[in-house]
């Protein structure tokens, strides 16, 4: 039996992968509304933020909102060669017969994650597909401190359509995990203690998981929450 099932949870609540645990913090909702507007109104928009500020989660929330009425494509450039052609990416989502005839999808919302240091030709091709209406709107996501060379022709189309996500704070981190736990395993006081001994959000998740797994493997009674002294001992 998976450790989290002992706490009556259906999945591991401490996974970092935003696709599995999609959280949304209340403070981001106005920015999400802006992003939804830009996506709907045929724009190219840039989303920036520090590591763990929730950029990918933010973009995935847009996809969840616009599906199923709008065709969309999420790509993480981390998984592609620097010289990839956006044409190949657009064709890859087409059925075989349309791919063979080089028929591109029309009016697609494209979300480009980890857009850094790519061949400028990638962005020129993006511009072409955007102008020719194959791409309805595009969201370009990158880390705020990364050197990203987006050509002036794309920046001219972006204008002032930037969304800057604020950094992950202790309160945000605790709220995210608390929402995932739904009253199980740890309370806010526990999470506060764990966060204060962690270096950043990923470490916080990792520490939460370590403590929860250890507790699950060493106890038989899960009707009560974990004792705070147990947590403090685990974090030494």
């Amino acid at each position: 039996m998976s450790w989290y099932k002992k706490f009556q949870l259906s999945r591991n609540p401490f996974l970092k992968n935003p696709k599995i645990n999609a959280d949304l913090i209340v403070k981001d909702i106005p920015k999400l509304k802006d992003l939804l507007y830009y996506v709907e109104s045929d724009s190219i928009v840039i989303v920036r933020g520090e590591k763990n500020s929730g950029k990918t989660r933010f973009a995935l929330e847009v996809l969840n909102t616009i599906k199923p009425k709008q065709k969309n494509l999420y790509i993480d450039l981390k998984h592609y060669n620097k010289n990839v052609d956006i044409e190949d990416i657009l064709l890859s989502v087409q059925p075989m017969h349309r791919r063979l005839l080089k028929l591109y999808p029309k009016n697609i919302v494209l979300i480009i994650d980890n857009a850094f240091n790519f061949n400028p030709k990638f962005y020129h091709r993006l511009q072409y597909f955007y102008d020719q209406e194959y791409i309805k709107s595009a969201v370009i996501i990158y880390k705020a401190d990364e050197l990203v060379e987006i050509p002036p022709s794309i920046m001219s189309r972006v204008g002032s359509k930037y969304i800057d996500l604020s950094n992950m704070t202790k309160d945000s981190a605790i709220k995210i995990v608390s929402n995932r736990l739904k009253g199980k395993i740890f309370n806010d006081e526990h999470l506060d203690v764990i966060y204060s001994k962690s270096k950043g959000f990923e470490d916080f998740l990792s520490n939460c998981e370590k403590i929860a797994v250890h507790y699950a493997n060493s106890r038989k009674d899960f009707s009560r929450k974990i004792d705070i002294h147990f947590i403090r001992r685990m974090l030494i």
């Binding site: 709907e40 109104s41 045929d42 955007y130 102008d131 209406e133 189309r157 204008g159």
Partner: peptide, 19 residues
């Protein structure tokens, strides 16, 4: 609902796409 939907436009009248 977007501002242009409120005004009765189906699409954004200030779209920068060449059309």
């Amino acid at each position: 609902m977007t501002w242009y939907n409120e005004l009765g436009y189906k699409k954004n009248p200030f779209s920068i796409k060449p059309n």
